[in-house]
Amino acid sequence: MIVAKLIDTTLCIGCKACEVACQEWNDQEYTLGTFNGSYQTMPDLAHNFWNLIRFNEVERNGAQSWVMSKYQCMHCAEAGCIAACPAPGAITQMANGTVDFVHENCIGCGYCITGCPFDVPRLSPATKKVYKCSLCSDRTAVGLEPACIKTCPTNCLTFGERDELLRSAEIRTRELKADGHAQAGIYNPAGVGGTNVIYVLNDATQPEQYGLPKDPEIPWTVRLWKGPLKALGAMVFMGSILGAFFHYVIFGPQDPEKHGHPEEEPTHEA
């Protein structure tokens, strides 16, 4: 069974209770935020801050409005972090779809930061390892819902079986359309095989307003690096080694006595 989180952005009131619950459950050290002229707690995600409510200020129909969105790991079906990771077992994708970092196997190379199309993983300067939302895998493993879901007071956040949540997202989208939000829709980008964090947006034509990329996918240079370049490398390395070996077998070493310049004078005496 694939599990997922549904985020109905139209119901978010910006209370930030999910941020507190995330910090509490994951026992994060306290970090002083910075004031950037916004109601947002922090300017960005951090290695010890995995769930940020973005207070995007957007102009709609001539009026300023807050477009709130939950910024966290999307738990992609085709995850860019896993595609980029060189260390076996450092990033796992569980049978329920959760993408989780296993820190004893993480080497801190940071390739996952480059591979992620949503810019989520963050390197800790202290441990030199990378951190992000675990979908509370330590809670879901024992049948509990993630901490952010548990605490949400408006039912903006729900957790459950992915297919079921997609169905309720469709129902909610129809409601919004009937309410006059003609652009309402679901954010579940196909470029990464769908995500296990699904959004309902009241304007799905402009996901950028919510801080979500329009067509996220595993970067083509990452695919090149892990695909065709690997084949090219194997061909060049094995070709050089086998080529050298068989050159020696067929032609042998260079020998001045056998292969010398016939027109050259023989050796001189000093």
């Binding site: 980029a84 390739y111 480059t114 240079t221 990452v222 690096w225 370049l229 490398g233 390395f237």
Partner: peptide, 16 residues
């Protein structure tokens, strides 16, 4: 993203 492809490409040439 450019470096992640350029680095192994240069390494293949260099090691070869």
């Amino acid at each position: 993203l450019a470096a992640i492809a350029a680095h192994p490409l240069a390494a293949i040439g260099s090691i070869g």
